[in-house]
Every structure is written in structure tokens, then in C-alpha cells.
Design a protein around this nucleic acid. Structure first.
Lengths: 226, 226
DNA sequence: GCGAAATAACCGACCGGTCGGTCATTAATC
DNA sequence: GATTAATGACCGACCGGTCGGTTATTTCGC
């Protein structure tokens, strides 16, 4: 008879996989995929190597599960949706600060992704489709809305969204992964403000009349629409 | 007797190293450091594996030589210096387009760097000190000059420089290395314009009087100072 | 209620292929 | 023929994946 009832078996297996994926994330964050040893992952999960193969057929499958399950910005579409009616003058800095928080909280995952997806077309496709495009499209939708309303200037919204993600992505790389923290440390506030202001001012339409008191006038516009 | 006179020997060795490093770049760009085989590198250089070890003691030394010798933006300081007196309205788009060109021309190198520097603190330090910081400082110097002149708004110039590099770096990753070219292709012009305008507008001081015809007025300021 | 049997989870020694690095030999040059 | 560059067969450490065996838990037979 099974140790776990059939009804709970699936969730048991999922919990097991989570333990292993968590351990794998810790190991992959320190060494590349090829350098990481299945023995190390097993040790980190406090399991024997053979046990890993009860839950994942190969090392490659383990990595791909990791990328798929632990998405970088799964909450982004929801977050953006909830801010749809918040004008950019307030919405963009808020979004930027939020994204930066998520990035920093997931720096291990980001490190794994940026290192591994390029060496394997299958992985690159997996990531771009399941994570990257979803995030850009969501941001681009927000930008497009406010471009149509004339608050933001017209430009390719997907390209603009990538500008934003790119700034933050690079700050993450440079600060957390490339030793920038030691050589020229930037506070979380500096990063969020710099990127947020750069993007906001870079994206706004030139409207001299709105410029001096843009937040309140934008709020007025939003209220008028609601 | 040596095959090559002592006077020419050093340059002969350097030429040999170049052949090997070029081959290594091609191989490392396709596979990760750990996955790349010394046999493959030797084959790409049209040499036997043993010959590689006459010029580099280990595989790791080969990679580090590659990072050190083929800097990503060696010409940047000179480029920036030559534009010191060109006002941002013209200077920034020009610089952005130039940097984007260099990035695309060196995408193989960028791919190697972004994948490999994180797994080894020594490599990360080597890159940040010899390549990264040099580029940011150079850009930051230009920005600082025009901040002091009141054309650009005050902010941390190193952080701002990283915003710019980050946007372009990410476009490179996303287009060339992550398959974005297939899913949402962006022309070189779109990239350069989007990033250039985003950064320029994001960095300019809010000067309603300059806004309508900013390039000519900035040129006037520059002329006044010269 | 208790030993036996059944089952599932887990273990870790082992195997076979792989590849960084070595070195005895060969080729090229003067 | 002396000297050095180049070679590539070879070595052995390493590691992904396997599988026969062990342990823990539940159920069955009586």
C-alpha cells in the first residue's frame, strides 16, 4: 500500500519537486549548468542522487522545470492591470519600484537564466515565450493606453517596454552579479528613482502646459475619464 | 636556432595567440565555457590541441585572456572625448547609435561575457574593473559636464550611464541572443532611436524655454562657452 | 494484535563515456 | 643536424545516469 493516499499523492510529488528545485536553484546560482553536479543538488536537497531521478528524468529537464516554474515576473500582468487607470506620472515610478523589488528578490533565478538560456535554443525559446514576451506585452499595453490618451509620446510600445526592463535588468546584473555593489554601490532608492525618472521623462509627451505640475494635471485627466 | 629571430619572436607569439583567441571566441559563443571543448577550439584554429597549451597554460587562462584582450567598448572613452563639446541633443543620439553598432558587431563577445563572468568572482572582477567601470566613467564624465551646464538635470551620473548601457545591453540580449529577432524583430534604427530618445528626454533638464527648439538653443549655449 | 507480506521511497556504489591536460615523437627551419 | 614548433595518442579524474538493495510504512492473514 502507498505511504501516501492516492488523493494526496500528486501534491506530495509536487512538494518533493519543489524541494529539489529549490536546492537546484541554490546550486545553479553558484555554478553554471555544466559545472553544477547532480550530487551537489542532491546534497543541498538532503537527498541521494538516485532520488532526484525519481522526480526528473535528466539534468536538462530539471533546469527547464526551474525556468518554467519560477517565473521572474509572474505577478506583473496583474500588477499592471491594477494600475491601468493610474496615470504614468504616478504609475511608472510605482511599477518601476515594484519590478526592481521583484528582481532583487529573485536575483539567483535571474543569474541562472541569463547564463543558461543562450547556450540552448530550446531554453531560449522557453524563456522568451513564457516569461519575456508576457512581461513586455503587459507593460506595452499600459504604455499604449496612455499613448493613445496623448499623455505618453507615440513610439513602439514593445521597444519602450524593453528599455525599462533592460535598465533594471542591467542594474541587477551590474550590482548583484558583477561586483558593482563593491565598486560603486547604488541604493535601492537610487536605482528605482534613476530608472523610474529616466523612463517616465523619456516616455512622456512634450506638453508644455502639463509640465510644471504634471502629476496633479494627469490625475485630473484620469478623473475626467473615470 | 629559433625559426623566428628573437626580435620578431614576441610578435609572432602574439599573432599565434590571436589566431587561438579568435577561434576560442567562435566556439565560446556557441557553447558555454564548460561545454566548449579544447579540441573544438584547436580545430577552429586549425591547430592540434597540444599546440594551444604552448600559448595558454589552461582553459581558464584562455578565457580570461579573451575577456581582457577583446574589450567590448575600447574606443568609447576616445569617442566620448571627441564629443565633449557637442550638446546632448545631438551628442546622445550619436553616441547611442555608435554604441549600438559596436555592441552588435561584438555580439559573440557579449554573449561569452554575460554567460561566464558570473560563475567566477575573479572573472567578474576582471570584467567590471577593466571594461565596465571604464565605460560608465567615460559616459558619466560627459553627462556630468552637461549637468553642470544646466542642460541635463542633476542625478547620479554613473547610475544614469548604466541606464543607457543597460537599455542597449538588453536589446542585444533580447534581439540577438534570446530569439527576440524572430518573435518581435526591431530594426537597428528602431533600437537606436528608441533608446536614444528615451535617454535624451529622460536626462534633459526641464526647461520649457528650450523645449520647442532644443537642439539649436543648446548649440547656442555650446558656442557661447567655446 | 502480531508477524508476515506488500509497497513505495530512498539510497549510493558502480559503470561507461568524456575531456582537460601531458609528453614522446615528428616536422620544419636554418 | 641542431633546435624548436607542432602534433595527437594517451591518461586518468570526473560525473550523469543506473540499478540492486535497504528502510519505513501500511495492510493482510490468522
Amino acid at each position: 500500500m502507498p505511504r501516501v493516499s492516492a488523493a494526496n499523492h500528486d501534491s506530495y510529488v509536487e512538494a518533493r519537486r519543489d524541494v529539489i528545485l529549490n536546492a537546484a536553484l541554490r546550486i545553479f546560482a553558484q555554478a553554471s549548468f555544466a559545472e553544477a553536479r547532480m550530487d551537489e543538488i542532491a546534497a543541498a536537497a538532503e537527498l541521494a542522487k538516485g532520488t532526484l531521478y525519481l522526480y526528473f528524468p535528466t539534468k536538462e529537464a530539471l533546469l527547464q522545470s526551474l525556468i518554467r516554474r519560477y517565473s521572474l515576473l509572474p505577478e506583473l500582468p496583474e500588477m499592471v492591470e491594477s494600475m491601468r487607470e493610474v496615470p504614468p506620472e504616478l504609475g511608472i515610478p510605482t511599477l518601476v519600484a515594484e519590478i526592481w523589488n521583484r528582481f532583487r528578490a529573485r536575483k539567483d533565478l535571474a543569474s541562472v537564466i541569463v547564463r543558461e538560456i543562450h547556450s540552448n535554443p530550446q531554453r531560449a525559446k522557453l524563456f522568451t515565450e513564457q516569461v519575456g514576451l508576457r512581461a513586455y506585452r503587459s507593460l506595452a499595453g499600459y504604455l499604449d493606453t496612455w499613448m493613445k490618451r496623448g499623455v505618453l509620446r507615440q513610439q513602439d510600445p514593445l521597444a519602450a517596454a524593453q528599455c525599462l526592463v533592460g535598465m533594471l535588468w542591467f542594474f541587477l546584473l551590474s550590482q548583484e552579479l558583477m561586483g558593482g555593489k563593491d565598486l560603486h554601490p547604488l541604493s535601492d532608492e537610487t536605482v528605482a528613482t534613476t530608472a523610474g525618472q529616466m523612463f517616465l521623462r523619456g516616455a512622456l509627451a512634450a506638453r508644455p502646459s502639463d509640465r510644471k505640475n504634471s502629476t496633479s494635471s494627469a490625475n485630473q485627466r484620469a478623473r475626467r475619464r473615470a
